[in-house]
Amino acid sequence: MAESLFYLLIFPGITFQLVCGWFFEWFDRKLQARFQRRVGPRWFQPLADLLKLFSKEDLLPSGANEFAAAALPLISLGAVLTAGVYVPIAGFSPASFEGDLIVIIFLLSVPTLAYYLAGIISAGIYSVLGGGRSLLQFFSYEVPLLIALSGPAVMAGTWSIREISSIQAEMGPFVLFQPIGFILAVVGLIGKLKRSPLDIPKAKSEVVAGSLTEFGGVKLAIWNTVMNIQAVVGIFLLVNLYSSWSGIVAPVLAVPVFFLESVLMIFVLSAASAVFARLRIDQLAGLGWKVLVPLALLQLLVVILMGV
């Protein structure tokens, strides 16, 4: 009992996820700043921002559904934190079971749907636009992402993340066999996290802040936390699926290598957001269905043929 509480609350549960989320956010912001030749924030900035939001007044426009507006961020937070418990950290996974990959993919979609609903219920014109856009974007990136993520699963012959990650000790990191799949997964992750260049649902110059335009105070703080933890889970997931070295390197090095890879992933995400301009929603749909899906299918075909 005490053990599961520890797993749930400390590691790899809430506390660990939060700390990682803050660190990743800070690192991302610092990197962005350095790309732009700025100094960048100090290490406690994400925490300070969170505290600031907590101390702010919480307003919603009249006509918004107060209950739903409070429930949606909490539901998303619950979903991403649950997902976080199932992702192995450097091979350590107390709650693993066969099929948890599917559960995680499902749980990571919850915030997107909540985001869409948040746009609809918060009675703002930009929120509605942003919500609609987030759904459109969801359909564009989710399918290639799913196909890409099933690549490692098919290759390993199991749907448990821990198994997939440990089997790479024998077969070698999957990123070597499925580079296209990995790139597609990164693109899908960017879309899922609504990061630039796929920040179409919250493009500032177009729809102000998208679904979250009308949110403020504690609710916005929770939303931001959700986004952070979603990033953490997504990055850990990709590292596990595509480049798990925990069985290959010496056990002492497993943890540093794991985190190094995660940090590298943030670097890749940051660089992508600095280098590409935001796409238009029709361009994204075109990219998603005409380029990403065929590529993902091709990759899957290759994986299946390799297995035969």
Partner: peptide, 21 residues
Amino acid sequence: KRMRLLLALVEALTGEAETVS
């Protein structure tokens, strides 16, 4: 061509920050 912006990015990363506190 794509590398052009990446190169600028690396340059910026290795150089000094231009802003001051």
